[in-house]
Each structure stands twice: as structure tokens, then as C-alpha cells.
């Protein structure tokens, strides 16, 4: 493993473990009041990992679109590799959002699935970025693969917020809890600390994954180059 990705991965893993400790042993259990009775909502513990995963996925998908645009602007191969690596890491996290989201929905609402704006958004996202990989694999020529991949990563990144807003237009009322609003976070103290530690841990770990993926892409390119060298020489 390369040094930079090793350091990032271990730092991320340490933070994530600290996050687990904080979430389970330091942060107080969430409580809801129903008719004077206090009920513990233990499923709230899922939040400490589910939300960091979701925000990490957004960050990397957005970066994927940004690098895609930079590739189209400059035609530098390295940007295309960065875009591809970012989208792939983002997609891994989108899948994790789906898994953890479905488990949370079952634990908190008693059903596995609900057609609710945020859930719908992530399902559409999953399908859209699956399309990205199908598209890449169905183009043979390298330059066309790079161009089409970059173009679709931009379109997809633009579409993410639109899908989210559209979901709220309809009679489908949002029932997903909102923690962060423009007024700030609706939690404090140990809860916020546990969340932030997990959040940074997840971002660091994802960055190390991104670097590994990029290394792999670059090494493959070197191989292609050497092969050509052998054939020509």
C-alpha cells in the first residue's frame, strides 16, 4: 500500500472506531415523549454512520462531475482518471447509503421501503450511476469512453439536487428526519461530537480508497504504455 493511502486509511479507521465508541458509550440514547411516557429510540444510533456515509457519497459524486468537467476542458488524461475514481468511490458509498437506509427504515418505521423524497432520490441515484458504469463498459474506444464518462458524470451530478427538489414538490410528504438546517444542527454535545468524529473518519477513509483506485488506474495506464513500447521497439 502506498504510504499516503495507508496513513489516511488508518487515520480514518481509528476515527471511525472512536466514532463507534462515542456513539454507543458516550452519546445519550435518543428519547421520544409519547403521552408522558419516555421511549428510547435505539435505532437512532444508526444515524451516526448512515449520515456520514450519505454525505461522503455526495462529496465524491460531486467531485466526479467536477473532475469530469475539468477533463473536457483540458483533455488531460489524469482528470479523467480522477473523475472515474471519484465516481466509483462515490458509488460504493451510495450502495452503503441504500443498505443502511433500508435497515434504518425497517427499524424506525417498521417497513423496508417508503416512497419518500430522500429514499427515492437515492434509489434514482443508484440507478443513474449504475448506468454510468454500464455506459463506460459499452464503449470500446478509449477516448470515447473518457468523453462519455465525463459527460455523464456531469449530467448525473447536476441531476442529484434536481431529483431531491422534485421529490418535495409532490404529495409525498417528507417524513425523513432533518438534522441539519440553515439554523444549524439540531443536536449538541456528545451526540454532535460522535457524529462529527464519524463524519471525518468516513471522509478520510473514503479519500484513501480514492487514492488507491487512482493508483490502480495509473498503474494500468503505465502497463498499456509499456506494452506499446515493447511492440514498437
Amino acid at each position: 500500500m502506498k504510504k499516503s493511502s495507508l496513513i489516511l486509511a488508518s487515520a480514518g479507521a481509528l476515527l471511525l472506531m472512536a466514532g463507534v465508541y462515542l456513539a454507543f458509550f458516550v452519546a445519550p440514547d435518543a428519547v421520544v415523549r409519547i403521552d408522558d411516557r419516555e421511549l428510547v429510540r435505539y435505532s437512532q444510533k444508526i444515524f451516526y454512520f448512515h449520515v456520514p456515509v450519505a454525505e461522503t457519497s455526495f462529496v465524491f459524486l460531486l467531485l466526479g462531475g467536477l473532475f469530469g468537467a475539468m477533463y473536457l476542458g483540458t483533455r488531460k488524461r489524469s482528470y479523467e482518471q480522477m473523475s472515474y475514481a471519484a465516481v466509483e468511490v462515490g458509488f460504493i458509498f451510495v450502495l452503503l447509503v441504500m443498505i443502511t437506509g433500508v435497515l434504518w427504515t425497517r427499524a424506525d418505521w417498521g417497513v423496508w421501503w417508503e416512497w419518500e423524497p430522500r429514499l427515492t432520490t437515492f434509489l434514482v441515484l443508484t440507478l443513474m450511476y449504475s448506468g454510468y458504469f454500464v455506459l463506460r463498459s459499452s464503449v470500446q474506444e478509449e477516448s470515447a469512453k473518457a468523453r462519455f464518462g465525463a459527460i455523464f458524470s456531469i449530467i448525473a451530478a447536476v441531476n442529484v439536487p434536481l431529483t431531491f427538489v422534485a421529490g418535495r414538490l409532490d404529495s409525498l410528504k417528507p417524513v425523513h428526519p432533518t438534522v441539519f438546517t440553515l439554523q444549524g444542527a439540531s443536536m449538541e454535545g456528545p451526540m454532535l461530537a460522535a457524529f462529527l468524529v464519524s463524519m471525518f473518519g468516513m471522509l478520510l477513509f473514503a479519500t484513501s480508497l480514492y487514492i488507491m483506485r487512482l493508483d490502480l488506474l495509473r498503474a494500468r495506464e503505465d502497463i498499456e504504455y509499456l506494452k506499446e513500447e515493447l511492440e514498437v521497439g
Binding site: 463507534v20 428510547v40 435505539y42 435505532s43 444508526i46 448512515h50 456515509v53 460504493i92 435497515l103 480508497l209
Partner: peptide, 28 residues
């Protein structure tokens, strides 16, 4: 949901995150 009912889902979430990330690292 109380602890008795909710814990399998909570554990499931944490395990699946670690499992997916570790598998991805190993494959890479």
C-alpha cells in the same frame, strides 16, 4: 424502537458498512 427490538438493525448497519469497505479495500 427499544433496544431489544432495534439492536439487530443497528448491528446490521455497522457490520454492513465495515464489510463493504473492507471487501473493497481487499479487492483494490
Amino acid at each position: 424502537m427499544e433496544f431489544q427490538e432495534a439492536w439487530p438493525y443497528v448491528v446490521g448497519v455497522y457490520m454492513s458498512i465495515w464489510a463493504v469497505l473492507l471487501i473493497y479495500v481487499v479487492v483494490l
